Amino acid sequence: MGRAAVVVTSVRVFLAGPLASDTLRAAVLGRAVQGHAARLADHAICADRARVGLAAAPGAEAEGLLVTLGPDEAARLGFYQTAVGLCPGTVTVAGATATAHLLAVPDAGPWQAASWAAQWGPTVAATAGDVMALWPEVPARSVAARYGMMLVHGASRVRAAAEAPSGPCRRPGPDDLAVARRRQVYARFFAVEEYDLRYRRFNGEMSPQVNRAVFLSGDAVTVLPYDPVRDRVLLVEQFRMGPFARGDGQPWLLEPIAGRVDPGETPEDTARREAVEEAGLALGAVLPVANYYPTPGAKAEYLYSFVAIADLPDGVEGVFGIEGEAEDIRGHLVGFHRLMDLVASGAVSNGPLILTALWLQRERDGLRAAVARSAP
């Protein structure tokens, strides 16, 4: 005779750190679940950037929440824990056993609630919604493999909500968009999502249901180093898949320095980091050019373009890039007038550099005059 199936009706769970908060807990579990304050002996709440969990710490005590979950809620929590890199463990709380989420990072530091919430809280909460949208169709370990990139998109969502500009375009109300289905059809370094949705038309009626796909790559920065004393810029050259896949005979492009905005960074932080990684440059003042969607019909990417004041003597150009990311980036020192000739001739064929060069053309005299005034 076969064994009878064991049906788990409920499980006790100790939640600490961000998972003890009402908002994140409800996003992960699918509904509001109440619990009771509790303390876990010989453990501390630790953090490894965005990840927060429990670690053994003799003599310490972790504050958290003791909750009882049904099988569906327990499955959702298990999926989320695996997806974000937490490990389940058995602990004793209030005299009874419970499951807790452990952080298996040996050098993780203590969780500082206020500073973590300011730097990571909104991003982790936004990303939790994206993670749970994949449950249960996508295996949790597949999600874990790209959780870092999902945090990039989560941070983009947070910036998008905070930076929404005013203007003449429609501001959507709660009934102006109706999403019937959302699914992820491709996910590796980048991702592609499909939506079945309806939207409010300009005549006031809802559109028929349409299928739309969007390429997710996160927010990014471009920065053009400019030396107003020598009146020249530094461009970078590298192989690009977009032109190659299009069949362009010239898949090596001249571009500004560029890179993805990592979670926990500001766009200016990214500009300074990428200048070191791609060109070995320490930037001076970083000046905003424009923030924009380069291809809003199909891509969720949003760019922050800058010009940065930099010292660009002869010989500063070289070959740079992070070897582990297969980057091979060559620098070019180009005088301002030569830059504008390249733009006019079509030799510069990427939008961010064209836009930034035109901004520099407009602002160049003022930048050079400011440097002249400050000279001893």
Rank of each mutant, 00 (worst) to 15 (best):
T270I: 01
E278V: 00
G35M: 11
R39L: 06
W252T: 06
P18Q: 07
V6Q: 07
A60N: 13
D42G: 12
G284D: 07
L303E: 03
N350V: 04
A41I: 02
H43G: 08
E73C: 08
A375N: 01
Y199G: 01
A180F: 13
R141P: 11
A41R: 14
E363Q: 14
T92H: 12
G35H: 12
P58T: 11
L103F: 14
A357K: 01
A60C: 14
Y147P: 09
D196R: 13
W111H: 15
L216I: 11
G148H: 15
E137D: 15
S349Y: 01
L360H: 06
H36C: 01
A47I: 05
E268V: 15
P122Q: 03
G70V: 09
A75W: 08
G366K: 02
H43Q: 10
E163W: 02
Y186R: 02
A271K: 09
V93R: 05
R183G: 04
A275T: 03
V214K: 01
L287N: 07
D227M: 03
A44C: 06
D107W: 10
L151I: 14
D196H: 12
A357G: 04
E278T: 00
H337V: 10
V93C: 10
Q184E: 11
A375G: 01
P136C: 13
F239E: 07
A55W: 03
Q250Y: 04
F14I: 06
N350A: 00
A60W: 12
L177C: 10
H337A: 15
P122T: 02
L29E: 01
E325S: 06
L333V: 06
Q361H: 11
V131Y: 12
F244E: 10
P165C: 14
A245P: 00
P71L: 13
S142N: 15
A108D: 10
H337P: 05
R230C: 02
A74R: 11
E237A: 04
F189W: 14
S217N: 15
V179Q: 03
A41N: 08
R201N: 08
A113R: 15
G351I: 00
H153F: 03
V84F: 11
V11T: 15
A298V: 12
V185I: 15
F189P: 01
K299V: 08
P251S: 07
D176R: 07
D314L: 08
V84L: 08
M150K: 12
F320K: 01
A164G: 02
D130H: 10
L312Y: 07
A161R: 12
G247F: 07
D176H: 08
G30F: 14
P376V: 01
E255M: 09
R212G: 10
I45N: 03
L54K: 03
L15C: 06
V319W: 00
Y199H: 08
V319A: 02
P71E: 15
